[in-house]
Design a protein around this nucleic acid. Structure first.
Lengths: 205, 205
DNA sequence: GACGGTGAGACGGAGTGTGTCTTATCGTCT
DNA sequence: AGACGATAAGACACACTCCGTCTCACCGTC
């Protein structure tokens, strides 16, 4: 399920965004300057503005889009041999949670610019995250749920994943497949999905 | 062996330097501003300038002095029950190496401002480090070595400690007492020191 | 040889940080 | 109560940085 009509970035554009990544890791978004990106990328100032007219905001936005695409692309890769709905969702929760926790850049941004970063995860940027999650998971969920139910479920799961990432709880570590499963079970039951429980000992690798 | 006439900092001065520490950790030295320090310390701009006239450079310099003093004070605390010269030096090497490795602020500074930081560790700031090391260790070494030999030895050891910290080697992890000891042994032997002899085989001439 | 993409860097204007200064406030000492 | 020292708050002018645009030169491709 590749390319969804998303713009493919050129090598130079990727070099620029790599520089944005590095500079924002190093200086934070506020302190990062265009000249930092110019120097770090080796791309000229003129080119940066030609490719991303609008300055820092546009650059950072482009980086977010790229990282988000990479995030869900990696997530989808974990689903290839998921056998049923529950398995698809468990793996999604676990993979997403682990990737969020391992995301060094996100950690730095949360530390240095908590307001902006939290807003992007929980307010302004949330709709896009949910949309991308829906697009990514739709094909995997479609065989088991009607589109409306799927959207509703994914919406809930994205919100929970982010919330548990930001504020972990002893009661539900979503990086643990068993805990994720037990969080999901009642939801799936409530949806009235009846999955034949053919894999009593299934677990993630 | 406490206070060596070092200026004692007031509470407010310490609060300011704490803020410098925090801000330089967060923004790096270049990106840190006086206003950041003002906000982070809760001390007014006027007071900051009154206490540390000269701006960022002076503030950072004062922080370095404080941290250096704390470093050697902590080092000295490890020496209280060291029984002989070798023990004093091994503990010094081990403690210094470990503290350097655990120093989060130093790590951040090395990452974000390598040029300045390296210069402070290896060029501009090195004489001061060596001087403080000499002052700290002098009383502990004096019973075993004449002052000139002590200074020479400490000079070498400081340089080696810093070098191995900056560029670790498989051949000599100075955080490991045994490795530190084996690095020291030939040096002490060459000095012809006369220790209460716990190691009868280390003597050359 | 024309063309698209890029690097290098100049430029004015906007914005930010600096260092000083003044004034008001607070707590302490007499 | 009054005097004093220390500090907060913030205005101010100056300098510097950063921004966004622009021009020009260069290079590879068609």
């Amino acid at each position: 399920m590749p390319s969804r009509g998303r713009p493919v970035l050129t090598d130079v554009e990727n070099r620029v965004l790599d520089a944005v990544l590095e500079c924002s890791r190093r200086w934070g978004f506020t302190r990062m300057t265009i000249d930092d990106i110019v120097e770090s990328s080796g791309v000229s100032r003129a080119t940066v503005y030609r490719m991303f007219p609008g300055g820092k905001d546009v650059l950072f936005e482009a980086l977010r889009v790229r990282e988000l695409a990479a995030f869900f692309s990696a997530l989808e890769a974990e689903l290839i041999d998921a056998v049923d709905l529950e398995e698809v969702l468990v793996r999604s929760l676990v993979t997403a949670t682990r990737r969020l926790r391992d995301d060094e850049h996100l950690a730095v941004m949360l530390a240095s610019e908590p307001g902006e970063t939290l807003s992007d995860l929980t307010v302004d940027g949330l709709p896009r995250i949910i949309r991308m999650a829906s697009e990514t998971l739709a094909p995997w969920v479609a065989p088991h749920l009607d589109p409306e139910a799927a959207r509703t479920l994914i919406d809930v799961l994205v919100r929970l994943t982010i919330s548990y990432f930001l504020a972990p709880s002893d009661h539900a570590d979503l990086a643990d497949p068993e805990r994720a499963r037990s969080l999901l079970a009642p939801m799936l039951a409530a949806l009235g999905t009846h999955q034949p429980d053919t894999h009593p000992d299934r677990r993630m690798r």
